[in-house]
């Protein structure tokens, strides 16, 4: 297969950046998108050019590191898949493919397709945990959890922190990511003591980081590779509201 690529090249955070054209040939349909970029990079290095910088690690859809905005879609055209799980068989021979970084105020570009998503870590540091020091736990089965709740919590906990929801959102909102963690912990008895402060602290940190507001567009859910549901946002809003009322 052969493709025309238009790839965002940006030397560093200060550089303006622009789309650069590349053509690539002899691509096998069973290659992953990142393997296709590997092939291109190999060519670039052999020609003495700077290879395209991109984030990746596990290459099996779980670490959340890969993050390409492909032809107008976060992680590309395939539903519920990360960039590393996207295979070239999803494209047609001869396609022109745009490859850009996540674009959001809270995710500044570091180089080419690599962005700084440390804002997510700071949101978790603000409250995305249960405050239990090592060694303080009771026997694990002393706290039964209804299976249905455990399943819902697991659905929310599947978030990989990739940031596609933010990139897909016209407002650059991080509600889906934040609500996934808040929901997971709110569904467990262990999460109850800090439920109110958690919601307030995480949402405040989210605002501080410069993420946009949610206007119920739903692009986040549509593009999330782990199919995190909008119902999490509703749950978070309830918690936040309840917590705000109490704190006043």
């Amino acid at each position: 297969m052969k493709f025309n690529l238009k790839v965002w090249r940006q030397k560093n955070a200060k550089d303006q950046g622009k789309l650069v054209d590349y053509t690539i040939d002899n691509i096998n349909a069973d290659m992953s998108f990142l393997e296709m970029v590997d092939v291109l990079n190999d060519e670039l290095v052999r020609k003495g050019e700077d290879p395209i910088a991109f984030d990746h690690d596990c290459r099996e859809g779980i670490c959340g590191m890969c993050s390409m905005y492909i032809s107008g879609r976060a992680h590309g055209p395939q539903h519920a898949a990360t960039t590393c799980q996207l295979y070239m068989r999803s494209f047609k021979d001869g396609d022109t493919i745009y490859v850009e970084p996540w674009r959001a105020k809270a995710f500044p570009v570091i180089k080419d397709l690599v962005t700084d998503r440390s804002a997510f870590d700071r949101i978790i540091a603000a409250g995305g945990f249960v405050s239990v020091n090592t060694g303080q736990a009771q026997d694990a089965n002393a706290l039964p959890v209804e299976k249905a709740d455990a399943e819902k919590a697991m659905d929310a906990a599947a978030c990989i922190g990739c940031g596609a929801c933010v990139a897909a959102c016209p407002n650059g909102a991080a509600m889906l990511f934040v609500s996934a963690k808040i929901s997971q912990l709110a569904l467990f008895p262990q999460g109850q003591p800090e439920r109110n402060t958690r919601a307030i602290n995480m949402v405040n940190q989210m605002d501080e980081e410069g993420f946009g507001n949610c206007t119920n567009i739903g692009a986040c859910e549509a593009e999330c590779p782990k199919e995190i549901k909008l119902t999490n946002i509703a749950r978070m809003n309830r918690d936040y509201l309840a917590a705000s009322l109490i704190s006043e």
Binding site: Q136, A140, K147, A157, F188
Partner: peptide
Amino acid sequence: RNIIDQCVAQGVPFARDYGGLL
């Protein structure tokens, strides 16, 4: 054994059976 206790206390969503136990 302590590991499982610790992780459950943190909110790790281990699989459970219908009785709600691990």
